[in-house]
């Protein structure tokens, strides 16, 4: 406890916790897209996968821990960002362009957009806000019909493109952080840099590409109601 409090009292310790919770979030999005891709196998594959998650005895443990982790990540991410901007009050000096200024703040910008996205996304596809009847559909084997839920939703072009836009901010966040966590956790050497750069591009393209592909496929008519 004393050690934890000590860590939290230093800037490096607070950032360490942002990075540790961030790793869980990275693993979460990797797992999330792996599961979602079952939509390409077919309706029953996705619904079975969803059924497996929803009936897991760990469901609420997982949901509540994810909530706690997101809250910790956001609270400390915001705190660290505030401390950092306090340390540099005259943020824009003569040689610096405004877009560099925005670029250097891309973590908090993409983070806050993601926070809004997570809230909307959970309310929308998990809790069924604004979905109506489709939310209660069951498929042939009596499982909740997540497939129809997703496809119906993304047939609305506004929603599809809003999801795709939100994923651009996930891309910004991931591209920076997949590489950065290695440095923050102290696991980095000069000779790893190229590999870590490559890894962060690969993870970002795979995760974000996967997420975007679903609304896009619905819009292009490749995924349709059966």
């Amino acid at each position: 406890m004393k050690r934890l409090l000590y860590l939290l009292s230093t800037t490096i310790g607070r950032k360490l916790i942002v990075a540790l919770t961030g790793i869980v979030l990275i693993l979460f999005v990797v797992g999330h897209i792996s599961g979602n891709l079952t939509i390409y196998i077919g309706q029953s594959a996705l619904n079975n996968y969803a059924h497996f998650l929803q009936t897991s005895p760990m469901l609420w443990v997982m949901r509540l821990s994810m909530l706690a982790i997101v809250m910790l990540h956001v609270a400390l991410g915001v705190a660290v960002t505030q401390e950092n901007s306090l340390a540099r009050p005259e943020s824009c000096h003569a040689g610096q362009s405004w877009y560099l200024h925005v670029y250097q703040r891309r973590m908090i910008i993409s983070g806050l957009v993601l926070l809004a996205f997570i809230a909307v996304h959970v309310a929308h596809l998990t809790l069924g806000a604004g979905i109506g009847e489709v939310f209660r559909l069951k498929d042939a084997s009596g499982h909740v019909d997540v497939y129809s839920r997703v496809v119906t939703t993304f047939q609305n072009a506004w929603i599809a493109w809003a999801y795709i836009a939100a994923m651009m901010f996930l891309a910004i966040h991931l591209k920076h952080t997949v590489r950065a966590v290695f440095q923050t956790l102290g696991f980095s050497r000069e000779s790893y840099f190229e590999f870590l750069e490559f890894l962060s591009w690969m993870v970002t393209l795979a995760v974000v590409g996967g997420f975007i592909s679903i609304p896009l496929s619905v819009q292009l008519g490749w995924l349709a109601l059966l």
Binding site: T11, R14, K15, S85, L86, A87, Q104, M107, H176
Partner: peptide, 8 residues
């Protein structure tokens, strides 16, 4: 009052 590394 120095800031912390954001890996830029």
């Amino acid at each position: 009052g120095f800031g912390n590394c954001s890996n830029h």
